[in-house]
Amino acid sequence: MSTDRIVVAGSSGLIGTALVSSLRADGIDVTTLVRRAPRDENEIEWQPDRLQLDPAALAGARAVVNLCGASIGKLPWTRGYRAQLASSRLRPTRTIAATLRSLGPDAPAFVSASAVGFYGDRPGERLTETSEAGDTFLATLSADWEHEALQAGPAARVALLRTAPLLHPRGVLKPLMLLTKLGVSGPLGRGDQVWPWITLEDEVRAIRHIINEGITGPVNLSGPEHAMANDIGRGLARRLRRPFFLPAPAWALRLGLGADAADSLLLSDAIVAPDVLLTTGFRFMHGTLDEALDAATP
């Protein structure tokens, strides 16, 4: 098999689809792991719920990228859905890690998804890749997720993608755009909480940078400019020519969405710095909030 082959799990999601398209556009051989019968030679079936993956699917690849996980944007987070959020991340990651471990020293690099939710709610604290995990539901889940990925070592080099919410019409902007178009957007909670963010284009470019540079350990995939929730909301409203005035108090968000989801997704405050990306030579295509919102709302 090609030594320039990349294996992608979770290729049907927003990031996975864009990553596969980007790699193939540059002539890179991509194998996708699917949970159904393969439709062509570029697909290989696996059953992560049963912890089943043929080692031959990964052997000889340059890297395995794991993007599996049920959407955190699906609300509310009922007890059953919280269990699904966990199992849809931990089981696939555990399956890939065990398979890579079985390949020994010839195992490909493992680039595994995580989230900036790892840090939890940390107002005023500059959070780098060396910062410890927070104590929210999403922080605990992200720490467990990373623990599973690290089990691929020492056979495989492991990189952990602590990804920020995507400023994209199908990412974090989807519900915000709907509310804004309806004319009912405004401050969420205090509104001054810092929201990490990244564009889809820079997310894909950063993943490829991590693979190409052989980076290991946690990597913050977050834009270099800090932005408050109100900055993002007002910027979006301005581009859509709609008002931004109707506040949603924190108590109402917790009541409507559930405390775990509201605190993890909308009310948490985290200044996440992309130190590893910047010190390894990565340059953002969209380095400011204005550039990111312009790209997301053409």
Rank of each mutant, 00 (worst) to 15 (best):
S2G: 09
T3W: 04
V7T: 10
S12I: 05
S12M: 07
T17E: 14
S21Y: 01
S21T: 15
G27V: 11
T31E: 04
A37H: 09
A37I: 07
R39G: 15
R39V: 11
D40K: 08
E43Y: 11
W46D: 06
D49R: 12
R50W: 07
A61N: 06
A63E: 11
S71Y: 05
W77I: 08
Y81L: 04
Q84D: 14
L85F: 03
L85M: 07
A86L: 12
S88V: 03
I96A: 07
L100A: 14
L103C: 12
G104I: 03
G104H: 03
P105A: 15
D106Q: 13
P108Q: 07
A113L: 14
A115G: 14
F118Q: 05
L127A: 14
T130E: 12
A133S: 13
A139M: 10
A143M: 10
A143I: 03
D144W: 00
L150I: 06
G153C: 03
G153R: 13
A159N: 05
A159D: 06
L160E: 10
L160K: 13
L161T: 01
R162S: 06
L167M: 11
L173F: 05
K174G: 08
L179G: 14
T180D: 00
V184D: 02
V194Y: 14
P196L: 05
P196E: 05
I198R: 02
T199N: 03
R205F: 04
G214S: 08
I215D: 09
T216H: 10
G217M: 10
N220W: 04
L221A: 05
M228I: 04
I232A: 02
G235S: 08
A237P: 01
R238I: 00
R239P: 01
P247N: 08
A248Q: 06
P249C: 09
G256P: 09
L257I: 01
A261D: 06
D269Q: 03
D275S: 13
L277D: 03
T279W: 02
T280H: 15
F282N: 01
M285G: 14
L289C: 05
E291P: 07
D294E: 13
A295E: 06
A295L: 05
T297W: 07
